[in-house]
Design a protein around this nucleic acid. Structure first.
Lengths: 187, 187
DNA sequence: CGCCTGTTTGAGAAGGCTCAACGGACGTGG
DNA sequence: CCACGTCCGTTGAGCCTTCTCAAACAGGCG
C-alpha cells in the first residue's frame, strides 16, 4: 500500500464484525490470500488508496529470484502479526477506556513514524463504529468512552483529523509501558 | 516444533496475561524474534516438547539459498497469523460460551489433522486458567461456562484428555459456519 | 426540504467480574 | 503413615462494566 487507510476484518455468519488491524502506507496486504487459496478475511478502504499489485502467480518467482524482497515480505507479515497480537491483548485484557486509548496512541505512533503527524494532528478517517468493531465494544459504549477521554482533555477532533493534547497521559491510560512493535514499515 | 504443546502470550505491566495462540507439532515458533531484535511475547511449554532449532544468523542464508524452505517459513507465519485473527474475532465478538466452544473445536480439529485424535479423544494439557487467559475471560466465569457446556453433554474430561461427545453441536454453539484456517502444517 | 450517515444521550437489563471459601488430588517431609 | 502445602477445580453472592433498546440531533447532499 502506497497511500491511504484501510482495514482487515472478519465477519461472523450472523453479521458481527471484528476489525483485525488497520493498514497504513507501507503495509502489505493479501499475504494470507497469496499463501492459501481462499481469502480468510475481508479488506476495506477507509480513504482513497494507492496500491502496488503483485500477481499471485509471481509470488513463487519472488522467493526464487529475489530473496531480499522475499525476506521483506516475510518481515512485513511478521510485523502485521505482532500488531494483531497487540490488538488481541487489548481486546482480551484491557478495559474499554484502556482499549480506546491504546488504539489512538498506536495509530498516532504509526502515523508519526510515517511523517503523517503535524502539530500532534493527523488524519483520522475512522468512524466510531470502526473503533467499536476493532475493540470488541458496542457502538454506544465506544461513544461514551470516547466522550470521557475527550472530557479528560486527551484529544480533540475536527473535520476528519485528530489532535492529541496529552499523548503522554493517554499512553499511561493505555497501560502501554512495554509494547514495542516496529513502527516503520520496511518498503 | 516436533512434538508437545506450548503457547505464545503477552503480559501487561500489571500482570494481566493474554494467550495469543497455542502451538502444536508442526508449528513454527520464534519467527517474530528472528525478524526483529527483541521478543515481543513469551512462549511457554504445556508439556514436554521436542524442537528443531534454527540459529538466527542462518535465517538470511535460508532465504538466499533455500527459497522453498523460506517460502514454507512464510507460509507457516501466515498460518499462525490467521489463527490469531480467528482468536481475536472470538474474543472481540463472541459470548463466553461461544468462545469456549470455538476454542475446544479448533483445538480438536487441529489435533485431528495431526492424527492425535482417537475415538473423539485427545490429550488436553490446558488448565482452566489457560483457557481463561486465551479467551479474555475470568477464571471463575470460565469454570462456570465449561460446566455449562459439560452439563449440555458437549464433552467429558478424564486424566488430562478430552473427549468430544457432540462435536457437531459444539461447532454450532461456536458459530463456526465459516472459518477455514488451514489445519495441517506444512513441515 | 428530506434523507442518509454518523454522533449523542438516557434508562434498564445482563453478562461477566471480584471476593471468598471449600474440596480433591498429589507430592513431600517428618 | 500421616500431616501439610500446593495446584487445580468448584460454588455462591453481590457488584459493575458493558450491552441493548430507543430516540433525538447534526451535517452533507440530492
Amino acid at each position: 500500500m502506497y497511500s491511504g487507510w484501510a482495514f482487515r476484518f472478519k465477519t461472523l455468519p450472523d453479521g458481527r464484525r471484528q476489525i483485525l488491524n488497520f493498514l497504513l502506507p507501507g503495509d502489505l496486504l493479501g499475504l494470507q490470500a497469496a499463501m492459501f487459496d481462499a481469502a480468510l478475511h475481508g479488506i476495506e478502504a477507509l480513504t482513497e488508496v494507492q496500491l502496488c499489485v503483485l500477481p499471485r502467480r509471481k509470488v513463487w518467482a519472488l522467493f526464487e529470484q529475489m530473496p531480499d524482497l522475499a525476506f521483506d515480505v516475510t518481515w512485513l507479515g511478521s510485523r502485521e502479526e505482532s500488531i494483531v497480537d497487540e490488538n488481541l491483548t487489548s481486546v482480551g485484557r484491557r478495559s474499554a477506556a484502556e482499549r480506546v486509548a491504546a488504539l489512538i496512541i498506536t495509530l498516532y505512533k504509526r502515523a508519526k513514524a510515517l511523517g503523517l503527524v503535524v502539530d500532534e494532528t493527523f488524519a483520522f478517517p475512522l468512524t466510531q463504529q470502526h473503533i467499536a468493531d476493532a475493540l470488541g465494544l458496542s457502538l454506544v459504549h465506544t461513544n461514551k468512552t470516547l466522550a470521557r477521554l475527550r472530557r479528560m482533555g486527551m484529544f480533540t477532533r475536527a473535520n476528519g483529523s485528530m489532535t492529541l493534547t496529552r499523548p503522554r497521559v493517554l499512553e499511561r491510560v493505555a497501560q502501554f509501558f512495554d509494547e514495542e512493535v516496529p513502527l516503520r514499515p520496511l518498503i
